[in-house]
Design a protein around this nucleic acid. Structure first.
Lengths: 341, 341
DNA sequence: CCAGACTGAGAGAGCGTTTTCTCACCACAT
DNA sequence: ATGTGGTGAGAAAACGCTCTCTCAGTCTGG
């Protein structure tokens, strides 16, 4: 056995020994440096194959100062949105030979900063999804995280592109849609307080209300998951609204499930809209009217922005603003002639 | 600026310089080695804080021969099953200070071996989900991947624990359930040919058929996603079966959607069962009868097995066999008196 | 009062690469 | 025959850590 190193793994030195050359030459051959005599190169390659030599990426990373890895910090891997972002990111990065390291903060936003820093040090760049982190904290750590791309947040710190979905516009479009169907009493089932994307939705609703004085919009507390929607059914019914804007698809699905149990017909009695257009939105009964966010594309775009930063391409990367597309399905319909039960 | 290293980052040398000690001492302090004079330790710590020094994990990894990272190879990150495994794995590993590196093979099983090798070299261990990889190839690469944990596969190579869900038993339980409801004509909507878990289901069905000669089981071609199920509706109706065992929940949902469009009532006319118990299974209409696999727990367990391997704990890690739990919901009901339309 | 044990910190050798620097060697022109 | 230029490969220095040696210095016991 050609085992020399302490780790027991085949190293560049073993190949050098076997080929009768210096390890520098082996490195040259492995990296396709053409200033090597073809005969020697062949000998080195033969030795490498015979020993099944595979360069150690850690040593390589140390020497090159890059890891060919990027990190992504997500608040919750169980959330379909982040799964989709991860998917898009992973796929796009893989195309350029980069791998993705996951850092799940499990919604513990107090540790997000440390987590992000740790992940960043292991990688060449970072994609950060931290909807609850304070603006001040974000601005403070952002420089040390560079190259950094933000998802659904912006920051004052310079050189940090943001990919944001215009939730405000989306919620306006949904509200508009419901009004066109004749609804005059709407309710918004809000997401987690302090969440940035919830804030954007609220801003959008404010704009909407300003231009639709005759429409009544009730605000209801909520959350971001199925159960939240399910539990909100009483509050929704009590509000007397006939058009419900749920925080996202998950909440909308929970709400529809709860309404179904109560014998309330969607959309005959109450119309429900979601947000995100997760894959299952088209498979619910009734199928869910929602605002579609090209979320996997957002992941891919995150990689492209990050790549530009990593390669230090001078081009300004101002970030991208995504406009949700209204996806009208069967969960929304004409307002009932008489108010909901 | 205390910038010495070429990379521009603060290194251990900078801290050593500032504290007026050797870099060895800084290392000692950072690692909590108590053979350091408290005064000096304090000085070092102060310098580290002032310079915002954060140890470089790559250098650390090289010196220690470990990366505190594990890899997971999945065939498709879009598949809820692998998302759940990833989630469980990531969470459990994080508890022990390990991060997870993703390698998505995008169903290109020809590259899975290279991908796995590459991922493995960057990490301290690997979790491999490669349902389509040939047994021979797997057995060949397995030794070079050690520490390695297999999901839903076994291999002859020694020292490789496997975590397998007993799909055979699950499918038997589901079939049994349908028979108890009076169904005598069943159909199995198969998964991808060559998939290991599909093979296990087929074996289970064979056992079932052997002990239920009076039950007719039709085999139908299928796949693993929603659309597959949706497209299978004609074949299902043509089969005349009243109890359908779908490959998994996604397929079952697609089928139910297709049946709904055809005006076929589930479960009055046809009973449908899934497999996996993905989160959405309890939210479909009707809610889906399925065989529940504690899939996130499987991810956690994968970490525990891998950890034992990494720590070289002598304890044999024979792997775990998970028995699916029947989850009876509303998509299965008594067989109709007259055959389905 | 000095030999031996012990303590604490620095010097330096890895870890496995890449890359620069250096130099031997050959060919060619002078 | 000697100087010059170019080529190709080895020696060695990085990269940023950890950890073993080594050796001053102090403490203790005879």
């Amino acid at each position: 056995m050609a085992r020399k190193s302490a780790t027991g793994r085949i190293g560049i030195a073993d190949v050098a020994l076997k080929a009768g050359v210096s390890h520098a030459t082996v490195s040259r051959v492995m990296n396709g440096n053409f200033t090597v005599d073809p005969d020697i190169a062949a000998r080195v390659r033969a030795a490498a194959v015979e020993l099944k030599y595979q360069p150690n990426p850690v040593g390589r990373s140390l020497a090159l100062g890059k890891t060919d890895t990027i990190g992504i910090v997500v608040p919750d891997l169980a959330n379909p949105t982040f799964q989709a972002i991860l998917r898009g990111l992973s796929r796009a990065a893989a195309q350029d030979g980069y791998r993705v390291l996951i850092a799940d903060s499990f919604e513990v936003s107090s540790e997000e900063a440390i987590l992000a820093g740790e992940a960043r040090r292991r990688c060449d760049g970072l994609v950060l999804c931290a909807p609850r982190m304070g603006d001040a904290e974000l601005a403070e750590i952002a420089p040390s995280l560079h190259p950094l791309v933000l998802i659904n947040r912006t920051t004052a710190a310079p050189g940090v592109p943001s990919l944001v979905v215009d939730y405000g516009l989306g919620v306006q479009a949904l509200a508009e849609h419901l009004v066109e169907l004749g609804h005059t009493r709407l309710a918004f089932l809000a997401g987690p307080a302090g969440s940035a994307s919830n804030g954007l939705r609220l801003e959008g609703l404010a704009v909407f209300k300003a231009s639709h004085a005759h429409v009544d919009v009730t605000m209801l507390d909520g959350g971001s998951d199925f159960d939240t929607g399910h539990e909100a059914v009483d509050a929704v019914l009590a509000s007397g609204a006939t058009g419900i804007l749920a925080f996202n698809d998950l909440v909308a699905m929970g709400l529809m499930s709860g309404l179904h149990e109560r014998g309330v017909n969607v959309p005959a009695d109450i119309s429900v809209t979601g947000f995100d257009d997760i894959p299952f939105a088209r498979y619910t009964t009734p199928t869910l009217t929602t605002a579609a966010v090209p979320i996997a594309e957002l992941g891919a775009q995150a990689w492209h922005q990050l790549r530009a930063l990593i390669r230090q391409e001078g081009t300004e990367t101002p970030g991208v603003r995504y406009q949700p597309r209204l996806e009208i399905r069967s969960s929304s319909g004409s307002a009932p002639v008489s108010p909901a039960p």
